[in-house]
Design a protein around this nucleic acid. Structure first.
Lengths: 218, 218
DNA sequence: CGTGTGGTTGAAGTGCGTCAAACTGGGTGG
DNA sequence: CCACCCAGTTTGACGCACTTCAACCACACG
């Protein structure tokens, strides 16, 4: 283990860490589906760790177009920003339990805990890599490839097996993939026709040929 | 100044810092245009600070499609990754002078310099934010908006005035914006016809109405 | 003057968006 | 229990923005 920045899971700790908070300070709070956690443009004074449930972060463009930056699973950290105001909004998609850590306290802890600093750096570089993957996908993949990539990534991050319970609407998926709900819906139907997935219900998808789906992503 | 993560410039220090290295260790090296600095998949054991010139980072998809992740100006740090291998390749676009810092040394310095840790964190979150901006653009903007956003962003990061000297080819721009060279070229011609830019030569562009260009980005 | 690399422009094709309509499942009230 | 509603989803027909294919152009270099 000779690489400092590679010693911790880059983005999502395994579900077994669910109850474990990043630091032993802060308060627990709860948000209902659709309820705001923080909003774009607000000053950053707190970071949040998702303890249970799912969160979406998103941005709104001038004319109402929405871009979903990411979906966040338990363990993920929200609100670690480069500048002093949030560059995206966050809200619960399900009932969510969060651990809220005042930024000042986190900064103090970092000052005399190099391991924590390193851990935060690892989380930040992990987030950067996810954003870069996201950008690469949006830049160069077609609709089928995007939907396949989404399904495979979601399975890996959230469920770990091939029976998915999607907490988001088609609109959320579309705004994450840079498509419309129509294209997402059509593409899922197409994957179903090809036998790659099995759509039990609109929010319930089974990945039948995960290898082939993976092959579609690049 | 009560926000620790906001005390340092998020991505690119001003050009006046050009000669200033992040840490007083490491060696200086030089790369020619097109020459590789590191490649996707290689183990990460060094980070590089750009001292002069311009660098592009990019990824190749299975079938040859390319995605340019970013263009890097003097001051930028390259190779700060979440995992122990590079997730993109880097190469010079011009003659480049780099300051190469062994990762082990950087890690040691971080261990007893909280300010350096914090600075790295700031750089990482800044990179994340840039990637997110990039992803938002790719997800929701049309060709004209993307090209306008590119020009304005380039002016801000590289030149600071409105007379741009582009170090990259149309192909680079296209791969950065998720378009083809044809669309980039046509879009530039269109902006020229509308009087928003003045294309002195193919690599030499003057922004005539920067406010209107900015208005196109959202 | 020939050649090569990068850029521009036109014409035709296509993948995804737009518009419109029908469907589905869950909730509510009669 | 059924009628109704409503938000979310699916599907079809059509249009358009960007890609593809194909020339042509500009400039640098030998």
């Amino acid at each position: 283990m000779n690489l400092a920045f590679a010693t911790l899971p880059p983005v999502a700790p395994p579900p077994t860490m669910l109850g474990q908070t990043l630091v032993p300070v802060g308060v627990t709070l709860r948000r209902a589906p659709g309820e705001e956690i923080f909003a774009e443009g607000e000053p950053v004074d707190t970071v949040y760790q998702v303890m249970s449930g799912t969160v979406r972060t998103y941005r709104l463009l001038g004319d109402g177009r929405r871009h979903v930056c990411d979906f966040h699973a338990p363990g993920d950290l929200l609100g670690l920003e480069a500048i002093d105001e949030h560059c995206c909004s966050a809200e619960g998609m399900t009932d969510v339990i969060l651990h809220a850590i005042p930024l000042k306290a986190l900064r103090r802890l970092c000052a005399d805990d190099p391991a924590l600093s390193q851990r935060l750096l690892s989380i930040a570089t992990g987030g950067m890599q996810r954003s870069q993957n996201h950008a690469s996908m949006l830049a160069r993949l077609g609709a089928v490839e995007r939907v396949a990539a989404f399904l495979v990534d979601f399975a890996r991050r959230f469920d770990a097996d091939d029976e998915l319970d999607l907490p988001m609407t088609r609109q959320d998926i579309a705004d994450y993939l840079g498509l419309t709900i129509h294209t997402v819906s059509r593409t899922l139907s197409q994957l179903q026709d090809q036998g790659l997935i099995d759509a039990r219900a609109s929010r319930r998808v089974r990945l039948r040929r995960q290898d082939e789906l993976l092959g579609l992503c690049a």
